[in-house]
Each structure stands twice: as structure tokens, then as C-alpha cells.
């Protein structure tokens, strides 16, 4: 241009959006800008008009309650999966044995849980195939779930779940809770959904500082919790299952029925 010299101007502002243009963040789908058809498109990759994610749960499970006792952990949930206010699926397990030292329970969107469970089941099969008696510990599952949930919430595509993970970690009872944002904590008693309001106080009443519940006491207080939850939570049912983990292994028990008694109902007036 200037006396035959090709002048290459120094880029004053590189790697940024050109004035008046939209900026595509790295890793995103550049669409028409590149025009390449073979571009890797993850299902979370935004399109030209963004991406629509599920922003609400559809088929849902309600509360899950977990308790630590002397020498183990148990988790209970009813056998209902609702479709809005419809009691849609009435014979579904929501508590599971993962392996002999890990158990879990799930509340929230059941489809999200089923897709997650496929990955967990695959891991269990891998563990078994190694044949070295090494199994996933509850803390590992808990930590893994934390990262999966946090990753999905950071992509604004959450797994709409609240999970309770329990088991024996090196012989010590472990009980943790993870939610759709990846918020995680451990405690002697955890609950999700309505259980947080109705079941937690009932269990905390039984827990004395520095004293552990026996397995029988834990199972009794769980029964009471499921009964109260059935009376007051409209998305629950009287049939529930419990998964117990002790040093002898994990076992799913039930389904049990709560002792429902509606004789009082005739006396309730004023609605």
C-alpha cells in the first residue's frame, strides 16, 4: 500500500469483541461466524438464540430422611413419584443400596435421578469387575455428586435433585446431603424437602448430645417421621422403604406401611 510495502497494523485490541459486535465467549457455539458444520456441539452449548434448559422438575419424589445410629446409617423415603399433584407412580424405590458400605436416597426430579443412577451403576459394575474387594466409599460418592451438581448448576442446567448419601466410611457412620446447586453438608440427621420441616425436629428431639441412637430407636423414629410426613405432605404416600447400612452390609427393607389413623379427622372442624 505504501510504496509497495504491505503494512500490517499492530492489533491494538485483540481477543476482545470488535466494536459493535457480539462477543462469543470461548468454548461457545460460534454459529455463522465460523460456519463449520463439524463443530463439536455439546448439548449444553448455546445456539444462536441461546439454549433452553429444563427450569423445573416434572416427575418428582418428595422427602427423604436419613439418620445415623450406633454402628450404621439408615435412609427412608416413600415409594411415590408424583406428576405435579397427580400421584402418578406408586411403587417406585427411591432408596438404594450402592454397595455394601454405601447407600443413598433421592428426592426431586426422578428422571434426572435415573440418568444419574446409570452412571453410578456403571461405576459399581467397574468396581465389581476389578474383583479386588475395593468398593466406593460413601464419602467418594458424596464428593462426586457435589462436583456433578455444581458443574450442572454452573452451566445453568441443574440436575433437579436433593440426595442423601450414607454408609460406613472406614467403619465410621457417614451421612451427607447434596442439593441441586452442589451445596453439601454432613450431619447426624439430614432430610430433604418437607422432611426438613417435619422430620428433622422429631429426630433432633430423640438425639441427645454425645449419645447415639440404637438401630431399633432409629428405625422407630423413622417410622414416626414417615407417618407425620404422610399426614401433612400432600405429595407423599403411606408406603415407604428403608435402606440400612451396617458393618454386615447394606440392605433395602420394606415396603412398610405407616400406621395411619383417620378417626380424628371427623372431629376436625373449621375448613
Amino acid at each position: 500500500m505504501y510504496a509497495g510495502h504491505q503494512v500490517i497494523p499492530q492489533q491494538f485490541w485483540s481477543n476482545g469483541p470488535a466494536p459493535g459486535q457480539f462477543y462469543n465467549f470461548t468454548g461457545g457455539y460460534n454459529g455463522l461466524a465460523t460456519g463449520s458444520a463439524n463443530q463439536c456441539k455439546e448439548y449444553t452449548t448455546p445456539g444462536l438464540f441461546g439454549t433452553q434448559h429444563s427450569s423445573s422438575p416434572i416427575t418428582t419424589g418428595t422427602s427423604v430422611v436419613g439418620i445415623k445410629f450406633d454402628g450404621g446409617v439408615m435412609i427412608a423415603a416413600d415409594n411415590l413419584v408424583s406428576y405435579g399433584s397427580l400421584a402418578r407412580y406408586q411403587d417406585v424405590q427411591r432408596v438404594f443400596k450402592v454397595n455394601n458400605k454405601t447407600i443413598m436416597g433421592a428426592g426431586g426430579d426422578f428422571a434426572d435421578f435415573q440418568s444419574l443412577k446409570r452412571s453410578i451403576d456403571q461405576k459399581i459394575v467397574e468396581d465389581l469387575c476389578h474383583g479386588d474387594d475395593l468398593e466406593m466409599k460413601p464419602k467418594s460418592l458424596y464428593n462426586w455428586l457435589t462436583r456433578v451438581f455444581y458443574n450442572r448448576r454452573s452451566r445453568f442446567n441443574p440436575l433437579w435433585l436433593e440426595m442423601v448419601v450414607g454408609g460406613l466410611d472406614n467403619g465410621e457412620p457417614f451421612l451427607g446431603h447434596v442439593d441441586l446447586r452442589g451445596r453439601a453438608y454432613e450431619d447426624d440427621v439430614v432430610a430433604t424437602g418437607f422432611g426438613k420441616h417435619l422430620a428433622l425436629p422429631l429426630v433432633r428431639e430423640q438425639l441427645v448430645e454425645g449419645k447415639k441412637l440404637t438401630q431399633e430407636q432409629a428405625s422407630d423414629v423413622l417410622r414416626k417421621c414417615m407417618e407425620v410426613l404422610y399426614y401433612r405432605d400432600c405429595r407423599s404416600m403411606p408406603k415407604y422403604s428403608v435402606v440400612v447400612c451396617t458393618k454386615d452390609g447394606s440392605v433395602v427393607q420394606g415396603p412398610f406401611n405407616v400406621n395411619e389413623n383417620w378417626q380424628l379427622a371427623t372431629m376436625v372442624k373449621g375448613y
Binding site: 445456539g47 444462536l48 438464540f49 433452553q52 434448559h53 427450569s55 423445573s56 422438575p57 416434572i58 418428582t60 406428576y83 405435579g84 399433584s85 397427580l86 448448576r153 454452573s154 445453568f156 441443574p158 441441586l180 446447586r181 451445596r183
Partner: peptide, 24 residues
């Protein structure tokens, strides 16, 4: 050639907005 999403609501769903943040 542009993917468009239909605007429909599934009956029976509970519509909740998702926020990635929560104050703990």
C-alpha cells in the same frame, strides 16, 4: 437452519425459576 424451541408448558409441572446462587 436455526433451531427454535416451541413455547409450551407441560401440564402438571411445577414452575420454579432456577438461581445458581443461594445465601447460606
Amino acid at each position: 437452519g436455526i433451531e427454535q424451541f416451541p413455547d409450551y408448558k407441560v401440564p402438571g409441572t411445577q414452575h420454579q425459576d432456577f438461581s445458581p446462587y443461594e445465601s447460606n
